[in-house]
Design a protein around this nucleic acid. Sequence first.
RNA 1: GGCGCCAUCGUCUAUCGGUUAGGACAUCGCCCUUUCAAGGCGGAAAGACGGGUUCGAUUCCCGUUGGCGCUACCA
Length: 498
Amino acid sequence: MSGVRTRVAPSPTGDPHVGTAYVALVNYCFAKKHGGEFILRIEDTDAARSTAESERLILDALRWCGIAWDEGPDVGGPHGPYRQSERSEIYRRYADELVSRGQAFRCFCSEARLHEMRAAQRAAAEPSRYDGLCLTLSPGDVQRRISAGEPHVIRLRVPNEGLCVVSDLRRGDVEFEYRSVDMQVLVKSDGMPTYHLANVVDDHLMRITHVFRGEEWLSSAPKHLLLYSYFGWEPPKLLHLPLLRNPDKSKLSKRKNPTGILFYRALGYLPEALINFLALLANAARDGEDELMDLHAIVRRFEVEQVPVGGPIFDVPKLDWLNARYIRERLTPEALMDRVARWAGGPERLNRLAEISAPRIERLSDLAPLVGFLFSGRLALMRDDLRVAKLEEVEVRQAFALAIRELDALPVWDAAGIETVIKRIAEALGKKARDAARPFYVAITGSATSIPLFDSMELLGRDLVRERLRNALALLGTPSKREQEVWESLLASAQVPA
RNA sequence: GGCGCCAUCGUCUAUCGGUUAGGACAUCGCCCUUUCAAGGCGGAAAGACGGGUUCGAUUCCCGUUGGCGCUACCA
């Protein structure tokens, strides 16, 4: 097989996810195994949620994993640009082409009408699907409304009957009735394409031959196949990978578990171990085969036919075992200390740490106890440690619960942003910032007296902070759904300081 | 609610109609050992349920149940 080209297409809307690394790894392995190319494309068509910071982190994280791409936004390539927000003109052209052929149409329906329509369909036990109202508009009507500046979207025209067969490399032929396939929006009212249009156009233009993506895309595959046929293009081979799961079998989510690649890096997992672990979830070891293997071996032994279809649980104890083996079997003492040094942070982080710590220590030996929490995993906290003056236990729980949520929404992770969040929460609780911050010191640093909180949190990193707050909260009792809702409305109604 | 995917030890999985259902992590016991790890040896641990097909089903088919995903002008 030659000319193989695969891609991973993350959306820069948050912290790099281990699932992204998993999907990237499978695509990478297949391409490399067949002497092909692996492409990285940024799917940032959601202007509201995409951030440059997130894109940077994702590239960093994948690079840290040891996965290298042949073409991408940072390295360029013959089929660029590799950032969808920079390809708007291309999508517009193809969308127009579809509209002119009647394979897509302009839709002026209001959100309210669509909502009502869906509610009615659900009540009637019918599939949720655009009813085609705007399909009945005359060309003149459409022209008039566009001229009048009415906002509208472009939707994919989907047949009302017939069967769509999606051939999946592992699942075989999966059948969908067209009447259950929605007439998806292809171009939003802001002119940006949706994933559905952009990924099809890009995969074609970028000569992608195989698409290995998460299972969440299986049900929209018919729309994509329809687009390929409207354009007269040959679709790539499809394989829908299982979604990684939490130990409770639900889709791996950061609400329940650490999902960030950066979290595992911050905790001191080696990239080789993480990748090795994910590789085992894609292609399990055969009887008698050593499960410890480097990326070369992973690529060499990779078989698409062996990729599982059931969602595997991200089993941290197994990752721990692999990581331990790398530490003791693959690293010399020198190499280990070198890793530790690099893990502890570059000069920037260390200098900042020195600056903050210097005024607070009398002897060099005071340093380790003071900043040890920055280099630790889970803190050994007791419920009583979190008892503070001026705050009832329920208030502490509220503060933690709200902080976990609000901190996740912070676009940039720095002390200033964190400070805003904590102060806003203090206000919502009707407390002084100083009092409200106290339990956070304990949860984050393990002690009520420590280096400044906001800097500590920045230095610790978002993933570790989330994990510590979650642990502290669990110690006091994870809030019920009801509590969470009430508390969140409390925050929403509070005054927001500038 | 609708549509789709999935179903072997606690977890990841092997088995491609006939096996004492194999391996790995975790767990338990023993050995080694100044402690703790590591290491060695051993144990416990699985085919969701009900129908078919077949001489024979974990394996093929159907149903039930369960889990998961999608059901957005998010990806």
